[in-house]
Design a binder for these strands. Sequence first.
DNA 1: CACCATGTTCCTTG
DNA 2: CCAAGGAACATGGT
Length: 285
Amino acid sequence: MPELPEVEVLVRHLDPLLKNRTVQKVTVRRERVIRPTPVARLKRKLKGATFNRVSRRAKFLLFNLTSLSGGPFSMLGHLGMSGRMYLQPKSAPLAKHAAVVLDLGSDNFVFEDTRYFGRFTLSLSPVEGLGPEPLDPSFCAEQFAPGLARSAQAIKVKLLDQKLVAGIGNIYASEALFRARISPKKSARRLKGEQVTALCGAIQQVLEEAIAFGSTVPLNFPSGERTDGLFYYGTQSSAQESRSYEERLLVYDREGQRCANCSTPIRRIIQAARSTFFCPNCQRG
DNA sequence: CACCATGTTCCTTG
DNA sequence: CCAAGGAACATGGT
């Protein structure tokens, strides 16, 4: 569930639920997801700690806590490709791939991650080299253009570079370029000024719409639900909420389907070993 | 068996 | 030091 909008919605959901809750016990069922912090250190730090605010930086969740000894500290969370975080009653059975479980008294705070690409860490270094937040008011052509000017890489690949803009992933990169009517293959340095401006606007629009939509969807997936309606689950579309989420995506995973603007079949290409979807008619030059 | 999947990090090469 | 490309990580769906 991993791009900026999904993380933002999750953060807003978790913040009031975790506030002032104290960690009674820490269970790490997959040590790999604690890195590079030593597992023992994270456990020691979390035990007896109380959650304050939960916020977001790019695709990272930032948990602010007060330790047992009274000092404030931060923990970063990342969902990787398949991570989820939720509270569930302590009596509820744990998911097969529940990687970390924080006992909050009546509830468990569960970090579940099928592929274990996600993580918890006390190190803040992953966040230090990140580029600007695309939804910040200061993010605009003046921030964005210089980063593009010297790169010969395809613009789609550049959008995934977290040093240039932080938080865009493979889905919204394709979606933003479609809305800006820019070919994903275009070299970053060859974008005209007005194209950079259009792309900035498209990025913000796509991300904001996704957050607005996600905020209306109830997030209760621990109890038996496979999906919560917010996140992307490939071609699976049996759940009604999941379907409405997919319909918001105009090109992603729509190879061969007709473009919403011009009816030309959507194409799929591979760039930097990842799929890109675009309309060859609407997105030229 | 094959290929695909919302992401980052590490290693190599230039 | 930087830019760019590719493999690795691990599991599951089709």
